[in-house]
Design a protein around this nucleic acid. Structure first.
Lengths: 342, 342
DNA sequence: CTGAAAGCGCTTACAG
DNA sequence: CTGAAAGCGCTTACAG
């Protein structure tokens, strides 16, 4: 029968008839140990299946060299795959590379506030939290445990309270809205998500403000992010159904998947994009690029945000001053067929 | 002046005039502590900037709940971004999610054999190594430290020696080659990479064998993976230049970026794809999908490999038996314009 | 060349 | 309600 517990350095010492000190020396090539002794120790260690505990080894240094990335909207999505939402995949990939370049590893962590979260979920030297929710418990937990963190986008109910990378949601929404008008829109509606994050909030606020300035009535519908492309028909019913007064001739969808759903649902019911309906998305993905017509999207440059976030996280982990601009790059508008008439 | 070392539980205890035990109780809500004492302790802890060391806390449990992914070819690439090689990004994303579902975090780790690798680089409960090189030092290190690991693809010089997920490189190469012939190819050349991994090795072996069976001379060129799209002209010179005898009418590129480079270089010099040259790639990405013409590629299904690898890694970490098929899903051929004549 | 002892920063019975 | 003591699995001066 196997012993269920892992063999420790003591077990090896006992089995080899030496002291733990000597085992440590032999296995790590430190100190001076007679060749034969060292060899015997290595053999015994292999026999009992000994593996040094990195945790115990780390106790003296007390620094793991580990960053964590928590992508809050992940659980509002039913997939993490590239076709759906490549923003987060690009963010995670770029963050991992940036961490490596600075001598850190980066892990993707599930909600660390879960009661059964693994130890690793709270073991990182610093955290990056992407798009926190309102009153986000993750931020609360990290802050209570005094674990350093930086968020990308702010907690909408506690803006400026923690270290955060400022995004340009408002300006970016206006960029899209103005583009739609330049493309010929008379009446722009907004399709937002149901997550309570700063992206949705700010964009909606910007839209309302923009409408007020133009003297247009805001026309807003919210659908869950998790519904993805499936919202297409419901959204069209909402905006063009019998109960709809004054249907829009342009639609700004905050998520790429919603836009993709609208795009294909429109085709199915004979609403021509862009002739009858101009369509733009706030955060696009591959599918918006290869659809017919292609959908105009914002490229939020997750790679740049990731780099900056990692830079900040490393400085926090090392107790260095944050003398850098705490903001992300501005998004770029990728204009495609859905807003290009004639 | 700030004390450079982090405050410990002792510091808090001293400052609050209590014992470390009481601090531990108060901060973790364990045991029984008078309200006021607990509050004072929390206040003092905040003042001195105390944060419990997750490493010390983990000593008793001795399990981090952490998986590591090492993508070996990462350093042969000059970018990790989706346009270049989305295989690894998809692999990493899917592996992270699969890990979360099983209560683990997953970190992307740089070469753990580097002398200045952070502690985290060797602290995972189990490792996944994607596409190891020949005599890969990472596998050697993990095996010596008795850290459990599974590789996706085998170490070409030590196949079957460790726990590995079998890939179907050979069969997949034949799938592409036969497809090229079915699409009208008479003479198929191979453009491989310079990394010594099983993907390149197996595919080349399969190609040679396939040629032998058909009585064709193998025509092979190798270019570094890191060159990416830039190999286009050099590759065409190699196959169609003055020194080339019997130019091919079809080219199988093992990497998508090489294929993309060939595709655009061919257009530039008036070689028509697919009319003059049939083109297929072994591992494609977005760019092969949206180029003109689109390039026929193998979809290696990294999501499925990731899931399986995580499953195996978790079992290894927990000491469970490996009663599952140790292989990845077969790739699917995405046929596009580059191999569709007329 | 080898090992007893102290210590890394916590937690957890257990005694008071 | 509070704390002394032992222990988690290692490493590292230091003494022999």
């Amino acid at each position: 029968m196997q012993r269920s517990a892992r063999a420790t350095i003591k077990d090896v010492a006992k089995a080899a008839g030496v002291s733990p000190t000597t085992v440590s020396h032999a296995l790590n090539g430190k100190g001076v140990v007679r060749r034969e002794t060292a060899e015997r120790i290595r053999r015994v260690a292999a026999e009992v299946g000994y593996r040094a505990s990195p945790i115990a080894q780390g106790l003296q240094n007390s620094k793991l060299g580990l960053l964590a990335l928590v992508i809050r909207p992940l659980h509002s999505l039913d997939t993490f795959l590239p076709e759906g939402v490549d923003y987060f995949l690009r963010l995670a990939g770029a963050a991992s590379l940036a961490a490596m370049e600075r001598g850190y590893s980066l892990m993707l962590v599930d909600d660390p506030t879960k009661p059964d979260a693994p130890l690793s979920a709270t073991a990182a030297d610093a955290y990056i939290v992407s798009e926190p929710f309102a009153d986000d418990p993750v931020l609360t937990l990290l802050s209570e445990k005094r674990i350093p963190f930086v968020s990308i986008g702010s907690d909408p109910s506690r803006p400026g309270r923690f270290v955060e990378l400022e995004t340009h949601d408002w300006a970016e929404a206006v960029l899209v809205l103005d583009h739609l008008v330049a493309a010929g829109a008379q009446r722009v509606a907004l399709l937002t998500g149901s997550d309570a994050n700063s992206w949705n909030r700010e964009s909606e606020d910007a839209y309302r403000h923009w409408c007020a300035e133009r003297g247009q009535d805001p026309d807003i519908a919210a659908f869950p992010e998790a519904e993805g492309e499936r919202v297409g028909d419901a959204a069209l019913d909402r905006f063009f159904g019998p109960s709809a007064t004054a249907p829009p001739d342009a639609l700004f969808c905050l998520t790429g998947r919603h836009a993709a759903g609208v795009n294909s649902a429109a085709a199915a019911r004979g609403i021509r994009v862009p002739e009858d309906l101009l369509l733009a998305a706030g955060s696009g993905a591959l599918q918006n690029r290869i659809s017919h017509p292609g959908v105009t999207t914002l490229d939020l440059r997750p790679e740049a945000s990731a780099q900056r976030a990692v830079e900040v996280a490393v400085r926090l982990a090392e107790g260095l001053p944050l003398d850098l601009p705490l903001e992300v790059e501005r998004a770029v508008l990728d204009v495609r067929g859905s807003t290009t008439r004639g």
